[in-house]
C-alpha cells in the first residue's frame, strides 16, 4: 500500500501586486479527504493548481512524496487525478477516444475494463461512443471524473467536484470519492457544505487570510 504525502512549505502567491495567500504550511497524507474552503476569490483554485504543479507559487515549495521518495515535478502528471470546472476535454472525440488518447499520451496501457467500470458507474456507458460535443455539462463533469480516476492516481484533486451535477450524480460522486480515499489522498476545494462534509480536515482560506491581515 503506497503512502502518498504532499507538504506545503510556506506557500505565498501573488497575482501582480495582489496577495492571494501568505505562509501556508500544511501536510496531506494518504487515506484522508482534505477540504479547502473559502469565499470566491480566496484562492482555493489557485492553491489546488499549485499543488497539482499547474502554476508556480510566488514563494515556498510543494513537496510530493510517494513512500518517502520525493517525486520530481516533471514526473508528477501520472500521480495526479484532477477535476475542475476549468478543465476541458476534446469535444471532437468520443468519451472513449478521449480516455484512450489520454492513456497513450501518459504512456500507460489503456485499461478498457476500468474505463468501462467507471463509465458504467457514472452512467456514461451507453454514450461512450458519442462525441463529447453533444454531452450536457453534467455529463462532461462526470467524464472529467473518469479522466481523473482512470490511471488510478495516488493523489486526487477535486476543485468544485459537484458543479453541474444533479442529485443522483452528486451521490454517485460522493460514493466514488469515499471509495478512492480508502487508499489514496483526496483534496477537495469547494464551498458546498455537502462536499466539505466528506472531509476529515479543512483549510479555511478566509480565516487564514484574516490571520495574515492582522
Amino acid at each position: 500500500m503506497t503512502n502518498y504525502t504532499v507538504e506545503l512549505n510556506n506557500l505565498v502567491k501573488y497575482f501582480g501586486r495582489r496577495l492571494i495567500f501568505d505562509g501556508i504550511n500544511f501536510s496531506f497524507s494518504s487515506r484522508h479527504i482534505y477540504g479547502i474552503s473559502g469565499p470566491n476569490g480566496s484562492g482555493k483554485s489557485t492553491l489546488v493548481k499549485i499543488i497539482a504543479n499547474l502554476i508556480s507559487p510566488t514563494r515556498g515549495k510543494v513537496i510530493h512524496k510517494n513512500n518517502s521518495n520525493e517525486i520530481e515535478p516533471f514526473k508528477l502528471h501520472n500521480q495526479i487525478g484532477f477535476v475542475s470546472p476549468y478543465l476541458f476535454l476534446y469535444d471532437e472525440f468520443t468519451a472513449e477516444e478521449n480516455l484512450l488518447h489520454f492513456s497513450n499520451i501518459r504512456g500507460i496501457n489503456f485499461n478498457k475494463e476500468r474505463s468501462d467500470y467507471l463509465l458504467n458507474e457514472l452512467k456514461l456507458i451507453d454514450r461512450k461512443n458519442d462525441l463529447v460535443r453533444g454531452y450536457s455539462s453534467g455529463m462532461k463533469q462526470r467524464l472529467k471524473f473518469i479522466f481523473a480516476l482512470l490511471h488510478q492516481p495516488p493523489l486526487i484533486i477535486l476543485d468544485e467536484p459537484t458543479s453541474n451535477l444533479d442529485n443522483p450524480g452528486k451521490e454517485k460522486v460522493y460514493t466514488l470519492i469515499k471509495k478512492e480515499s480508502e487508499n489514496n489522498l483526496v483534496i477537495i476545494a469547494s464551498n458546498e457544505d455537502t462536499d466539505i462534509a466528506l472531509c476529515s480536515q479543512v483549510i479555511e482560506l478566509e480565516k487564514f487570510k484574516e490571520q495574515i491581515d492582522r
Binding site: H77, I80, Y86, L87, F88, Y90, F102, I105, R106
Partner: peptide
C-alpha cells in the same frame, strides 16, 4: 479550446 491545462495534466 481550453485544453492546455488538460495537456499539462497528462504529459511532461
Amino acid at each position: 479550446r481550453g485544453t492546455t491545462m488538460t495537456l499539462h495534466l497528462i504529459a511532461a
